[in-house]
């Protein structure tokens, strides 16, 4: 079997599996709509109280699109790698994965790819369309959609690498919930998913610029909204380049950490 077929086999399996839970998709989509209403009313009230239409270069619609699509990206990218790995370690099942003719890191990525494709089609695209309609064309439709797609793909890889960097900690402690909540809180706050990075005070902004988290939410959304000069090649390429650099750096770090941590595995009995 060629390696491409190995990978697409896992993708297909994931797609079939997520088709099983159609109710979950419907409920998630419905909840996203209610969430959309919450964000809409909250920021409408905030902008109404501020007296100006543009705050830190963001209009009301910009902010809304940014935050709702951040939630949609969160749902789309959500991987439970930390949980999966901890469960595999505690049950001893991990040893079966290590014996497979594919590197564990690679195996995880491709076995998630199917559900990622499905959640993109079933929840991200509908949410995107609803936002585009509600904000009456405030999402610029042009080449930026293509660069957004590229940026989103890079965001996916960065997010996966962050997960894979954190997950092996489970080999050192059993505190899965704790590790996961620390990771999630840091990523969501410092990536702009909770509140757009444009609103951060200057000092905090400069710190966040040097961290990988904005590559997951802030950069793709900025590309989509054509903010921060990303509507020109001179602005777009450095943004995508930064994402690529983080993909590579985090991947190397994750590999090193995993190779080190995996030596700790001792499975009792068999």
């Amino acid at each position: 079997m060629t390696s491409v077929r190995k990978m697409t086999a896992l993708t297909r399996a994931g797609i079939t599996e997520s088709l099983q839970f159609r109710l979950g998709t419907a409920v998630t989509l419905f909840a996203n709509l209610i969430y959309l209403a919450l964000v809409y009313y909250l920021w409408k009230a905030i902008y109404a109280s501020s007296g100006t239409d543009v705050v830190n270069g963001m209009t009301f619609y910009d902010t809304m699109i940014y935050l709702i699509l951040a939630t949609a990206i969160f749902n789309f990218l959500e991987m439970f790698i930390v949980w999966d790995m901890s469960r595999a370690i505690q049950s001893g099942e991990i040893i079966m994965h290590l014996l497979k003719p594919m590197r564990y890191r690679k195996y995880i990525f491709w076995s998630y790819s199917g559900s990622l494709v499905m959640s993109f089609v079933q929840t991200f695209i509908p949410t995107f369309l609803v936002v585009a309609i509600i904000t009456r064309g405030a999402i610029p439709m042009g080449w930026n959609l293509l660069s957004f797609a590229v940026s989103l793909l890079l965001a996916l890889v960065v997010n996966y690498n962050i997960e894979m960097l954190v997950a092996p900690i489970c080999l050192y402690t059993e505190s899965t919930w704790g590790i996961n909540i620390v990771k999630e809180t840091i990523v969501l706050l410092l990536s702009g998913a909770t509140i757009p990075l444009a609103f951060f005070p200057e000092g905090l902004r400069r710190v966040v610029d040097y961290l990988p988290f904005r590559a997951v939410y802030d950069i793709p959304l900025r590309v989509l909204l054509k903010k921060g000069g990303t509507d020109t090649w001179q602005g777009l390429l450095p943004a995508l380049g930064l994402q690529l650099v983080w993909c590579i750096v985090l991947s190397i770090l994750g590999n090193l950490f995993w190779n080190r941590a995996v030596k700790r595995i001792t499975v009792n009995g068999g």
């Binding site: 402690t173 059993e174 505190s175 919930w177 704790g178 590790i179 996961n180 909540i181 620390v182 809180t185 840091i186 969501l188 706050l189 909770t194």
Partner: peptide, 19 residues
């Protein structure tokens, strides 16, 4: 009896409030 877990979870909880 799972002290490390307790400490990490508490830290995580404080972090969410801080965030």
């Amino acid at each position: 009896s799972f002290r490390a877990d307790f400490i990490i979870s508490t830290f995580g909880m404080v972090l969410t409030n801080l965030s």
